[in-house]
């Protein structure tokens, strides 16, 4: 800032507001421009995902890359989240003699919020980054141009399989995360906090409704779409060189994470009010 001020002292002071207005105007314009570009990209990618030719083998490969290989990360996250939830609510709830609510708190928090959001964020780091790096590298080494010259549409060949796999696999991952997370709470409650197994399970079933799980899975599908789309978008529009790919990867993870948190709030508002 000081530097900017100094550079203006040399000219005239009156230019400064004009400079500020120009800079702000410029960045608003370029922001709107990138929103437009993103919207166009999403529209094109979605349209191409639903029209032939399809590449079943590539979609299968992405199912495995995105779904199967994310299982350990999502499973660990869910397990320890469920465990710590039980522990935390125990220390908190004993103050109001409300230990009986632990099973319900674990089940609801995991299925509605924690499994989808944490799985989404973990997958953004794991899958979003790798999609952006892979497609970005293909961009800077002209492999995407090569695809086009060989009469293959990169939206169908590269992007559609990833977006389809991301959107379909995340709900499955989250469903497993739900089960593992609740099981984590169960372990801590039974072996550490001396609850009775039967009561804990009954309490869990009692409180859990279809909508709790379903809303979490719908969130997961949206997050999966966001993660894969952000990875593809930033990779596809990667700048030149290794630096371009690095920046694309960072943007993919950061933008996916932020969009997950924002859309999570909006979806929660829609589902439960």
């Amino acid at each position: 800032m000081l530097k900017i001020m100094q550079s203006f002292n040399k000219d005239s002071v009156i230019d400064f507001p004009a400079y500020v207005a120009q800079t702000i105007g410029g960045s608003i314009l370029s922001f709107l421009q990138s929103i437009g570009a993103l919207a166009a990209f999403i529209g094109k990618a979605t349209a191409k995902s639903f029209s032939p030719p399809f590449y079943p083998r590539l979609i299968m490969k992405q199912f495995i890359d995105i779904g199967y290989y994310s299982l350990p990360v999502v499973g660990m996250t869910a397990l320890f989240t469920g465990m710590v939830l039980a522990l935390q609510s125990y220390t908190g709830f004993t103050r109001f003699n409300a230990e009986g609510a632990i099973a319900g708190v674990v089940a609801l928090s995991v299925t509605r919020e924690l499994a989808p959001v944490l799985a989404g964020l973990m997958v953004a780091g794991r899958v979003g980054a790798s999609i952006a790096a892979e497609i970005g590298t293909m961009r800077v080494t002209e492999q995407i141009d090569a695809l086009i010259t060989l009469s293959v549409n990169p939206f169908k060949y590269l992007i559609a399989p990833r977006v389809i796999a991301g959107t379909l696999m995340l709900p499955i991952l989250v469903l497993m995360g739900d089960i593992i997370g609740i099981y984590g709470g169960y372990i801590v409650s039974i072996y550490n906090l001396d609850f009775s197994s039967g009561t804990y399970i009954a309490q869990t079933w009692d409180i859990l409704e279809k909508m709790d799980v379903l809303s979490g899975l719908i969130k997961a599908a949206v997050f999966g779409f966001i993660v894969s789309m952000m990875g593809c978008y930033h990779g596809f529009n990667s700048g030149r060189g290794a630096q371009g790919v690095g920046t694309a990867t960072t943007y993919a993870v950061v933008s996916a994470s932020i969009l997950i948190l924002i859309s999570n709030y909006i979806l929660t508002q829609v589902f439960f009010s």
Partner: peptide
């Protein structure tokens, strides 16, 4: 392509 652009 100048850089080859092979699918790695």
């Amino acid at each position: 392509f100048q850089g080859g652009a092979l699918f790695d």
